[in-house]
Simulated assay, not measured.
Amino acid sequence: MSSPDPTLIDRFVEQFGGNRALAHVHAPARSEIAGNHTDHEGGHVVAGALDVAIEGIAALNGTMVARVASEGYEPFEIDLSDVSARPEEQVSTSGLVRGMAAELAATGREVKGFDLVMTSDIPGGSGLSSSAALELAVGRVMETLWPGDPVTPTAMAQAAQRAENVYFGKPCGLMDQLSEALGGIAHIDFKDPAHPVSEKLDFDFADKGYALCLAYMGTDHSVSTADYAAVPGEMQAVAAEFGQTRLCDVPAEAFDERVVDLRAKLGDRPVLRALHYYIENQLVIERWDALCAGDIDTFLDLTRRSGASSGMYLQNVANGGNDQPAMVALALAEHVLGDNGAVRIHGGGFGGSIQAFVPLDMVDHFVKSMDAWLGEGNCRTYRIASEGAYAAWL
């Protein structure tokens, strides 16, 4: 566990006063390495915690009020004497804090007021799941400040997912929260949502001659909320035709037999998105096997196929119209790389970020070129971080 920046402690004391026992919290961002929109269908993913994170300092304050100050945002307070969901707090940090309080209270803990100062170097709106990092940071703070049994990474991730679904009002799978809770690079099977199976791998892309780069388009995520929600909605509409809630419970063979009538009843896009699920889910398994074998060439070839499936079949790169920032970013990245490396849409898609695996000798040129087109600082390299979200007394 790393030590907090002393200036963060100074900020806490300046904001809330000192002479109290302090806890340090760390919650990393994540990158989806493989598995584009497979998690919510009970499929497989490979994800990695990143070397950018939320850092915070917290302490009990002797009240029933949570006081939160996050760098770059207005401080806020919420009364924790009532942790039920409030419609007016949806799509707000207040809602996430209240939701995590409800989750931690459900573990048998006594809810108490606290002060929390946070800072983050996760690029805002970049598709690296800063919201999940926030949920986990707050959850680990509450776990530490409120005595009780330890919460496993999986249980904390599930609590964060519920808080985001119910209190924040955003439908999401479990990949973001679980990968950030676990740390490192991990293969996760979501077949059983109550008990996802995960395994971690000690792997550094730089050892194989590549850098993990993410390029952010600088667009507003909120304008694509409906498009994002339609992806699982349409996949699950296909599953419902088989009496199931998720595609993992629909054998590919059964789907194949009904393509004609599914197209007639649901239209082509739900069928294409279901086809992406079956293609991508298999590619995840093959990419994980390639990583475990240290076979970077096979991994990159499969990654290119994954990117093509997302663009053509899943259709979460562009939603039509004149504005297609993600498609432009992908085309520019391929223009720079040529036959080298691999690029794909990253995460939810539409206006978030793209992912590129770039040969080390091309990184400077790649980043400089993408920044020139997308804006200074919108493309950068990342490393896999070994530690997941944690909090500890100082």
Results as ranks from 00 to 15, higher is better:
S2C: 08
S3K: 11
P6F: 05
R11E: 14
F16C: 08
V25W: 02
A27H: 02
I33A: 05
H40N: 15
A47P: 12
G48T: 02
A58S: 13
V65F: 08
S70E: 09
F76V: 04
D82G: 00
V83M: 02
V83E: 00
S84L: 05
A105K: 13
T107L: 10
R109M: 05
V111P: 01
G113K: 04
D115A: 05
L116D: 03
S120Q: 06
A132Y: 02
V141S: 01
M142E: 07
E143A: 07
L145N: 02
W146A: 04
D149L: 14
A160I: 08
Q161M: 14
A163Q: 07
D176W: 06
Q177I: 03
L178M: 12
S179E: 07
G183V: 10
I185C: 04
H187E: 11
D189L: 08
V197R: 14
G209Q: 09
V223P: 00
M235Y: 04
A237G: 10
D249F: 11
P251F: 03
P251I: 04
D256H: 13
A264Q: 13
K265P: 03
L266S: 09
G267N: 11
L275K: 15
Y278F: 12
Y278G: 05
N281T: 09
V284Y: 05
R287G: 11
L300R: 12
R304D: 12
Q315Y: 05
A318R: 09
Q324S: 11
Q324A: 13
M327L: 15
M327H: 15
L332Y: 03
V336S: 04
G338D: 07
N340Q: 15
G341H: 10
G351A: 05
Q355E: 05
D371H: 03
L374P: 09
G377N: 03
A385V: 07
